[in-house]
Nucleic acid binder design. Structure first.
Length: 219
DNA sequence: CACCAGGCCCTAT
DNA sequence: ATAGGGCATGGT
């Protein structure tokens, strides 16, 4: 199997993901921080608490809360103290743009990424997730699952995040929808096949492709 | 009981 | 440069 086909193979297995990252742009920005090393179910609870406390103008409202207040709201998501501070840092940046997403989007992807990475608590995966899903600009999000799939199936290993990113962006066309779908497919694949298994190391996409190929050959 | 989850930062080699 | 520890909740 060629890496050019990974996307279509994943899609044939798991189907189109549609709006894989739920919520408005504002909610996506917040949940990008909440989901750091955290189960999505817990993110939903935390986000729900925030929405209950901030009925409208989510980002501006949240930015006016104290770190302690925020920590209390996002408690279910874990790491609540550090995440509360990270949200504050992120919101301080967004405030420069008067909390208007459209104003941020007038900058280039590289500028936005660089600014996001200057925020303490926003690493590459979080920054790229925000750019791809909240700002809807084409950037390839790399996570642990992405690395694992490349390693397992294609025996491809890089040392750095940006090497993975550049590699995949050189193979697949720079398309927001494509990158959104792709990342969603990778995560869903990992979830679907790992969650119920005792060890994630046994969660091999190879198995999945193998069984799919068998089905095809049986037809 | 242990291990994991849609990471990131800081520190010690 | 890079490995290891801390952050913390809820599910399996």
């Amino acid at each position: 199997m060629k890496i050019d086909n990974l996307y279509s193979v994943l899609k044939s297995i798991h189907g189109p993901q549609g709006k894989w990252w739920p919520g408005t742009a504002e909610e996506i920005i917040i949940s990008a921080v909440l989901t750091q090393n955290t189960n999505w179910k817990n993110v939903e609870r935390a986000l729900e608490n925030i929405k209950n406390n901030c009925k409208n103008d989510l980002l501006r409202c949240l930015s006016e809360k104290s770190p302690d207040k925020i920590a209390l709201m996002i408690k279910p998501a874990g790491f609540f103290n550090i995440k509360a501070q990270r949200l504050k840092n992120l919101l301080t940046w967004i405030e420069f743009y008067n909390f208007e997403i459209e104003r941020i989007k007038t900058k280039t992807i590289d500028e936005i990424r660089s600014e996001l990475l200057n925020i303490k608590g926003i690493g590459k995966e979080t920054a790229d997730s925000i750019i791809l899903y909240a700002f809807e600009l084409p950037i390839f999000v790399i996570d642990a699952y992405t690395r694992r799939i490349l390693a397992r199936i294609f025996d491809i290993k890089f040392a750095k995040y940006d090497e993975y990113k550049n590699f995949l962006e050189s193979i697949y066309p720079k398309s927001t929808v494509l990158y959104q779908e792709f990342h969603g497919l990778i995560v869903e694949h990992a979830k679907a096949y790992c969650r119920t298994k005792p060890s994630c190391d046994l969660c091999l996409i190879e198995n999945c492709i193998y069984s799919t190929k068998r089905k095809e050959s049986e037809n």
